[in-house]
Design a protein around this nucleic acid. Structure first.
Lengths: 313, 313
DNA sequence: AATAAATATAGATAATTATCTATACTGAGG
DNA sequence: CCTCAGTATAGATAATTATCTATATTTATT
């Protein structure tokens, strides 16, 4: 069989003739002339090398081989339809894959968004890349992901960033420590304390340092701990004060309390960040759109008021 | 997506590029030039309307949509292969359908042949049309079947017939009747007897009548019974003599015995008959070929010695 | 036998496909 | 910065495809 001389059109036309049982009828249905259809059938017959239709009582009836060709046509055409459908889903952002890179603090909030999202959009896969600020910045520089989440977006002119959730950084101590008995702690009191802080690459640390600097303060007793979780535990154990995203604190963790200080909590915000050069895949856009609805539901207090910007990505 | 501008070739080429990871490599494998392959990819990309390949470290790697297209290609091309295979089976007579029309007496022998045949060739379907001689002749005149079985083939110049099995017509009586005690019955003895015979349209009847006539005999006591089975039972019950194909007699039926008369049994033979105008389908030819082997196995005594003719259909 | 309906064939043409050769671009390795 | 391998683009052409109109042939129905 000469597969080279076979075209989708041929199969389409043949399948219709088998269904209608008439060449003329098919010509009408496909807006062709009758000779065109006859011609196509002839070409198909020659490509296959066997008669495909018998005329029985004026109707076109497939021969045995014709029936095989009809099945072939059905299978192939319906596979094409399925593909068109899938393609459409990709285009409209209902199917596909995208990746998000996030700084580690955000891992307390993103999974909740993604959970709600992927329930609504089961055909979309997401890869999450989690690291500290510096690691994520490196990925950002190398264009490795479709979407980034920062609390302090890199200053870059080819970048678009939209804040979507408040990320209050709070000062915390163990519930039973001396700090929590004071009604109001003054800034200078802090100099006394021992601080458990993230390393310098971390966003939380950076924000806190900036604030200290703006207040003209220099701490004299700090210890570096690499993860927010370790800090939380250390604070709970009474080893000192910590600065943590309020999202890191489990709601029901009674061992830790916020300390109110003038100027705290620091009002940072999570931003979605995309590079303008890279075409945002439809699925990622879909995600941002949905987030505009998901965030107010999941975090009724903490949305940023610029959520409608997400829908304009 | 522009399905109209999609061809099998495009999918073939694309699939190979995905497999090889290189345009140049594919060009070599398919005996094309590199620009040709680039071109094809471009056309495919335009037909689909999305980028299909990324270059990653010098290799061609499908995008998400590209992977969908690759799957599409695999599915469609393997469906085509399956079709080619099936087509080949039809052509070579390993798959398909054909019909045989037979006179009712032959229903004792054909099913045994068909059983052996369809075990060997499970993808072939056969339709059996059974009737008395006249009914089968009508089907024959209307070209309704691919193959016919007659003991006396119609005289027709556009017909080919090959005898394949002897069909001895024997004279029978009940075991305990007076007839079976005679060592040798003479022809004239028969005139006395009461005969149970098939109707005039039947082949058996026709053969017997012809023989009687050649012997110059006229029976004076005959009764017509429409089926061979009914005749067998009636003979067993002692109601008279019968003329039956020896195949109709169950081997172990002790109630009936052959009567030896000069000139009996009548040596008729089953013939396969095909019309020359109608192209014999490959499957029917396949059947005839196989019969050349099956018959000596199933009926070691009764093959006709012209079996090798079957293989020349 | 005459007519109407369905199908096939012929001849033509515009569009598309499948290729090629020659040449330009582009990124990685020296 | 130069070269090479791999890819892309341009321009050309022969073959094929998708159509059409006009006409012939076949088949079914009065």
């Amino acid at each position: 069989m000469q597969i080279r001389h076979l075209t989708f059109r041929l199969l389409q036309v043949f399948a219709d003739v088998v269904r209608s049982g008439s060449i003329t009828e098919t010509a009408h249905r496909l807006h062709l002339t009758q000779p065109t259809v006859s011609q196509q059938l002839k070409r198909l017959r020659e490509a296959v090398g066997e008669p495909l239709l018998d005329q029985i009582e004026g109707r076109q009836v497939p021969t045995e081989v014709g029936s095989e060709v009809y099945q072939l046509s059905q299978d192939i055409l319906s596979r094409m339809d399925a593909f068109s459908q899938t393609l459409e889903e990709h285009r409209s952002g209902e199917r596909g894959h995208f990746s998000i890179a996030l700084v580690s603090t955000a891992q307390y909030v993103l999974p909740r968004l993604l959970g709600a999202f992927s329930q609504a959009m089961p055909n979309i896969d997401v890869t999450l890349n989690i690291g500290n600020r510096q690691e994520i910045l490196n990925r950002f520089d190398r264009h490795e992901d479709d979407l980034y989440v920062f609390s302090h977006p890199p200053q870059h002119n080819r970048v678009r960033s939209v804040p979507f959730l408040s990320n209050p950084l709070v000062l915390v101590a163990a519930v039973d420590s001396a700090w929590t008995s004071h009604k109001q702690v003054t800034i200078t009191d802090l100099l006394e304390a021992r601080f458990l802080l993230r390393e310098s690459g971390s966003a939380t640390r950076h924000a806190f340092d900036t604030w200290l600097q703006s207040q003209g303060l220099v701490l004299n007793n700090t210890q570096y701990i690499a993860s927010n979780e370790a800090i939380r535990e250390a604070v709970a154990a009474g080893m000192g004060l910590g600065v943590l995203s309020r999202h890191v604190l489990a709601k029901q963790d009674g061992r830790i309390a916020e300390i109110e200080v003038e100027g705290m909590p620091l009002g940072s915000q999570w931003h979605f960040v995309v590079r303008n050069e890279r075409k945002l895949p439809p699925v990622a856009r879909q995600f941002l759109h949905r987030c505009a609805d998901i965030i107010p539901e999941l975090f009724p207090e903490e949305g940023t008021g610029q959520l409608d910007e997400l829908a304009r990505f």
